[in-house]
């Protein structure tokens, strides 16, 4: 028999019995960031493609909620910090090697961008909106003029943001479950899928909804491919990663991951969306909410299980 005990020390609730430093705040922050990135991506892309009118929910309506999502995300991040009054230290330096740092800076870029985008779209959705001050009106016209540039910046930065939500985890070599380059694309895809779902939810236009249902099906297919790929990668790797994957393959997180993330968050919505495309009457809220829920759960489960995975020594 092998017996390994910690004789003393480490009676530290964040570390024992397993690492538990990130609670709900970080996964929520990453979900909101991913969702925001997804919406901004589609808004930017369809603007560049000149489909502003056709897909007005994607381009105009959905982006109005993005500033709120990002602020909520930042609040969640802020709540995670344990030395809160030093928050501003994030913005006294740029640490290229620290995903936390460039995440903070990307948000610093994306958040104002989302405000500007929302500002130039607000009168489209609420026609009686009045900016009152001339400065603001002038600013609005200024940004309107450079909308296309804004759209390009938005597409690029939202991809960075989306990838960042995964890199934040995958940069941690210390947590074998997170230590895979697939988390970046996977979280980006999950963010895009959530964004598409949100657009579907908000859209009143049948053609737009159909388009986003199709997009969503495509993204989910990519996600499933990435997930399978990720587990295959783990299983072909070292014992620590095999053990890490085990958390989802027979371990304590198995049921929640496969039921909530894969079945309810991916397979069921795909089936429902396919059925809807086949003209069955399916209330759109169901697949959309399931996708959002699955995307949220994925972040929670990967955040928690990742902290439980460790090197053996």
């Amino acid at each position: 028999m092998r017996e390994e005990i910690i004789v003393s020390g480490r009676a530290n609730p964040y570390i024992d019995p397993h690492l538990n430093i990130w609670h709900w705040q970080i996964p929520l922050y990453l979900f909101l960031g991913g969702l925001a990135a997804g919406i901004l991506f589609f808004a930017g892309m369809y603007t560049i493609m000149g489909k502003e009118k056709a897909y007005s929910t994607a381009v105009s309506k959905a982006p109005l909620i993005v500033p709120f999502l990002l602020i909520l995300g930042l609040i969640a991040l802020f709540l995670d910090l344990k030395h809160k009054l030093y928050f501003w230290r994030l913005y006294t330096t740029i640490r290229i090697e620290s995903p936390m740092s460039w995440g903070a800076w990307v948000l610093m870029l994306v958040t104002p961008l989302s405000f500007i985008w929302a500002a130039i779209k607000v009168r489209e959705v609420f026609p009686r909106w009045d900016w009152k001050f001339d400065v603001l009106k002038n600013l609005e016209t200024f940004f309107m003029k450079h909308k296309l540039i804004l759209a390009w910046i938005m597409v690029v930065s939202s991809v960075i943001l989306g990838v960042y939500t995964g890199i934040l985890f995958s940069a941690f070599n210390a947590r074998p479950l997170w230590n895979t380059s697939i988390l970046g694309p996977l979280f980006l895809a999950s963010g895009l899928s959530a964004g598409a779902a949100m657009i579907m939810l908000l859209s009143k236009d049948h053609a737009e909804r159909t388009l986003f249902a199709k997009i969503d099906i495509g993204i989910i297919a990519v996600e499933m491919f990435l997930i399978v790929h990720m587990f295959m990668g783990f299983l072909a790797s070292t014992q620590v990663q095999i053990d890490a994957a085990g958390l989802f393959l027979g371990g304590p997180y198995t049921a929640s991951f496969w039921i909530f993330v894969v079945i309810l968050g991916m397979i069921v919505p795909v089936i429902l969306e396919v059925l809807e495309l086949r003209k069955y009457k399916i209330p759109v809220v169901i697949p959309a909410l399931l996708v959002l829920f699955g995307s949220l759960m994925m972040r929670f489960l990967i955040a928690f299980a990742g902290q439980e995975s460790r090197w053996l020594y």
Binding site: Y14, I15, I26, K84, R310
Partner: peptide, 22 residues
Amino acid sequence: CIGCGACINSCPYDARYSHPDG
């Protein structure tokens, strides 16, 4: 230190802890 916990997560030896002062 802002107490973000990134370094705690990054240490494969669990050598860091979050001080009660943050």
